[in-house]
């Protein structure tokens, strides 16, 4: 008789059809958190305790998720730790930040990475300056204007660009710049190859950010008699600004660590060179490549240090981007 009253309450609260099963076998809302509160073993008179099988599955899923997370974390921590421990001591010397490798052979210690750092920065920023307008405007076209076949074709092209290996981009520019136009291998050619890699990243990330801007804001702006282009400039872009900046920085980070086009188009030099059209120009990836080919300890040390410098550079860029994004959006 008493179990019958339990069923009545059960029905009233859980809104579940009467069943012949005992109360303990049903899925009540109270079991949503089966993380193991103390009362798990003593069934509540109304909702019962969680079904055994579901509890097991829940735990299993939890364990698998944590394992996957740790598995993904292992190589990351490993790389960071190795690079940090092997590379930090050169970074502590002021010479590293002030000198180039000019006149320093792989047998000798000393010298710095200034030539490579500024090369990477110059090429990275030049690439960004070219890519950001192209990428952002393409994304604006795709989200705000693009309808029909042409937009689909553009979107498809961007997909293809996303997938091209960096060495293909490098070879393509080589074919155009050196083989067809007969020009020298220079830093600017590297930038062109990197643009091919960066544009699709910016297009895709900016597209996602623009799609996140609620349509209501566009309509609110139209309803005020604001033309479409101004709505995009003054309402849509500012709303998506921080997301776009983040996307640009991710693209830049990818591009700055890129190596294949540099090997093809950007011959390394140990001296400081700032002219994008002047031939030789060092970058961190090519510096790493150069010193990697030596087995002598001073060169190996420089490889680790250069790798760490590159990681730090990307990290700094990310922090800078976050700061810009925070101050850029007017949300006070």
């Amino acid at each position: 008789m008493s179990s019958n009253t339990v069923r009545m309450t059960d029905v009233a609260i859980v809104d579940e059809p009467r069943s012949t099963k005992p109360a303990g076998a049903t899925d009540g809302p109270a079991t949503a958190d089966s993380g193991g509160s103390g009362g798990r073993r003593s069934p509540s008179p109304v909702f019962g305790h969680p079904a055994r099988a579901r509890e097991v599955k829940d735990h299993l899923a939890r364990v698998v998720m944590w394992l996957a997370f740790l598995l993904a974390l292992v190589p990351l921590v490993w790389i960071l730790w190795t690079v940090l421990s092997q590379g930090y001591h050169l970074l502590l010397q002021s010479e590293w930040w002030t000198n180039s490798q000019k006149g320093i052979t792989s047998r000798r210690e000393g010298g710095g990475a200034v030539h490579a750092i500024q090369g990477t920065l110059i090429q990275g920023l030049t690439t960004a300056v070219i890519s950001v307008p192209i990428g952002v405007m393409t994304a604006i076209y795709l989200v705000e204007y693009g309808r029909g076949k042409f937009a689909k074709a553009v979107s498809f092209m961007v997909d293809i660009l996303t997938g091209i290996p960096s060495i293909v981009a490098g070879l393509f520019i080589y074919a155009v710049w050196v083989t067809t136009l007969g020009l020298q291998r220079v830093g600017f050619a590297v930038c062109l190859a990197l643009v091919m890699l960066m544009v699709p990243v910016i297009v895709r990330s900016t597209e996602e950010m623009l799609k996140l801007v609620p349509n209501e804001l566009r309509e609110a702006s139209y309803a005020l008699g604001v033309p479409k282009w101004k709505t995009i400039m003054k309402v849509v872009l500012p709303t998506a600004f921080s997301g776009i900046v983040t996307g640009v920085l991710l693209g830049l980070a990818r591009v700055m660590g890129e190596t294949a086009p540099l090997l093809i188009l950007g011959p390394y030099t140990k001296a400081i060179a700032t002219d994008l059209f002047g031939g030789y120009m060092a970058t961190l990836p090519t510096m790493i490549n150069q010193d990697r080919s030596e087995s002598l300890q001073p060169a190996v040390d420089r490889v680790w240090a250069a790798a760490l410098t590159l990681i730090l550079l990307v990290l700094l860029l990310n922090i800078a981007g976050r700061v810009v994004a925070r101050f850029g959006s007017v949300r006070k």
Partner: peptide, 17 residues
């Protein structure tokens, strides 16, 4: 036309920025 005929929407939509 939209400058002459204003509109208020179902959900409040102030510009967030």
């Amino acid at each position: 036309v939209r400058r002459t005929v204003g509109m208020v929407f179902q959900r409040p939509n102030p510009f967030p920025t």
